[in-house]
């Protein structure tokens, strides 16, 4: 075990408790979704030559990695947005790794290649999230469809990325960041997120496998998905 200050230790404990609570709440959330009846399409497959529920579901599930599969990510503007989406979500992954690894193996994050990768992703995601704040607040369309949860989730993530970058800089001993309070704040922020996420839009990733599978199965059965283009 690494040496930690009492304040950091408390933050770590809270952080792990928050993780357990999140897991419990997520389990309840999934059970809630599963408590609704699964509708079954009793019609015969739409087109014997093309219909395949399983193929539709599989393709749909990996839609996230196939920007060419949707018109909205295939066009040039959409593809740039897709790249920013990838960076943003990789930044989230890096941020989570930072939060957990920093409490159990901080030295791992000090390995230059690891540290700089994490740092690059978090800073990249920070820049994307700043862009997204601008997009959501300045574009009338986005303002129209946004709720307080949408704004709050984005702003909090932006702050989380910023503090995460400072924490990583502190762990790596770079950019003159020497104050360990960043790490403590980062862990508390992460704890807050772990508790908040199941109640917010951020839990969308929990639903993603379900919603994508359902639409893939539905349209795969009819024979219109995966989309055939010519």
């Amino acid at each position: 075990m690494h040496e930690v200050s009492p304040a950091l230790h408390t933050a770590e404990v809270v952080h792990w408790i928050a993780l357990v609570v999140m897991a419990i709440v997520y389990t309840m959330r999934i059970r809630w979704l599963l408590s609704f009846k699964l509708a079954k399409d009793k019609s015969a497959p739409g087109n014997p030559a093309q219909s395949n529920k399983e193929r539709g579901a599989r393709h749909s599930l990996f839609n996230v990695a196939m920007p060419w599969s949707m018109e909205s990510t295939r066009n040039p503007k959409g593809f740039v947005f897709y790249l920013s989406f990838v960076l943003f979500h990789l930044g989230v992954v890096a941020g989570i790794i930072l939060a957990f690894v920093s409490t159990i193996a901080p030295d791992f994050l000090r390995i230059p290649v690891v540290g700089w990768t994490v740092m690059t992703l978090i800073v990249g995601a920070l820049l994307v999230s700043l862009y997204r704040i601008g997009r959501r607040t300045l574009r009338p369309l986005m303002r129209l469809i946004s709720t307080p949860d949408d704004y709050f989730s984005l702003i909090m993530l932006t702050v989380w990325f910023a503090v995460g970058a400072a924490t990583q800089a502190y762990l790596m001993g770079i950019w003159g960041v020497t104050n360990g309070v960043f790490q403590i704040v980062y862990l508390y922020l992460t704890s807050f997120f772990l508790l908040y996420v199941p109640f917010s839009k951020i839990s969308h990733y929990l639903y993603y496998p379900f919603t994508r599978t359902y639409i893939g199965r539905a349209l795969g059965h009819r024979g219109s998905y995966p989309v055939v283009r010519s």
Partner: peptide, 22 residues
């Protein structure tokens, strides 16, 4: 009218705006 697929669609939207130009 709620079933699992419908509830999934109801909770799944992140208001990203990507449906807009379709």
């Amino acid at each position: 009218k709620l079933n699992r697929q419908v509830v999934g669609s109801l909770v799944g939207c992140v208001h990203c705006g990507m449906c807009d130009e379709s």
